[in-house]
Structure formats: C-alpha cells, structure tokens
Simulated scan of single mutants.
Amino acid sequence: MSRTVLCRKYQQTLPALATAPFPGPAGEDILNNVSAKAWEEWTTHQTRLINEKHLNMMDKAARKYLTEQRGKFLSGADFDQADGYVPESSEK
C-alpha cells in the first residue's frame, strides 16, 4: 500500500511522494505534508513561471522568487500566474 499524507494544499488525505524532492528540511516538509498530485501541479506551474517570466536559475533572486511562490502554491495561498498564460481548453 502506498503512503498517504494530509495534503497542505488540498486538505485531503492523498498519495504521498515516494521520496523528498530535494535534500534538507524543506524537502522533508514537502515529503511529509504535500501530496504527489500537488507536487506534480507545482512542477508544471514552476516550469511555466520560469519560461514565461524568463527566469535565470543561476540568479539568486529568481531562485528566491520560486521558493516563495512554491510556498504560496503548496499552502493554497494566492500565487503568481505566468503573464499571458491561457489554460488549454478541454473542449475540442
């Protein structure tokens, strides 16, 4: 049986990540409090932010910005959207 967590974002018990997404206390916090579903959604959103805002991941300010946005996204708070992003339509 797979491990579950009470997801901070969705406030539901959902399947957990198999391993921490990165080392250290922040990775352990995500492992223990964020569902695999929420983490997958974050990684997609993070990629969109990097691409649309032309963030340079060598820039310390860009990494700090993404860390702040990750915290907001995973806690269910208001977070930045990519400029001009329009979600794909489910209608075809």
Rank of each mutant, 00 (worst) to 15 (best):
P25Y: 10
D29Q: 12
T43Y: 00
E28Q: 15
A77Y: 07
T47R: 14
D83W: 01
W42Q: 02
Q46R: 15
T43M: 01
E52H: 12
G71H: 10
W42Y: 05
P21Q: 10
S75N: 14
T47Y: 09
I50A: 03
R3P: 00
A82E: 07
P87R: 06
A26R: 12
E88F: 12
E88G: 10
R8L: 15
R63P: 02
V34H: 07
M57S: 02
L31M: 03
L74G: 09
S89E: 13
F22S: 13
G71K: 06
G24N: 04
Q46W: 01
E28G: 02
F79L: 05
G76P: 07
Y65K: 13
R3M: 04
Y65N: 10
W39N: 00
E91H: 09
P25L: 12
R3I: 12
K9R: 15
A26V: 13
D80P: 04
P15D: 08
S35G: 04
E88C: 02
E88A: 14
E40I: 03
R70H: 03
A36K: 13
S35H: 06
T43A: 00
L66I: 04
F79H: 15
H54M: 10
L66G: 10
R3C: 00
K37R: 14
L74C: 11
T4D: 09
F73R: 01
T13A: 06
Q81G: 08
V34K: 03
S89F: 13
L55F: 05
M57L: 15
L49A: 07
L6V: 05
V5S: 12
K53H: 06
Q46K: 15
V86H: 09
V86D: 05
W39L: 00
H45D: 01
Q46P: 03
D78R: 14
N33P: 01
F73W: 07
V86M: 06
K53S: 02
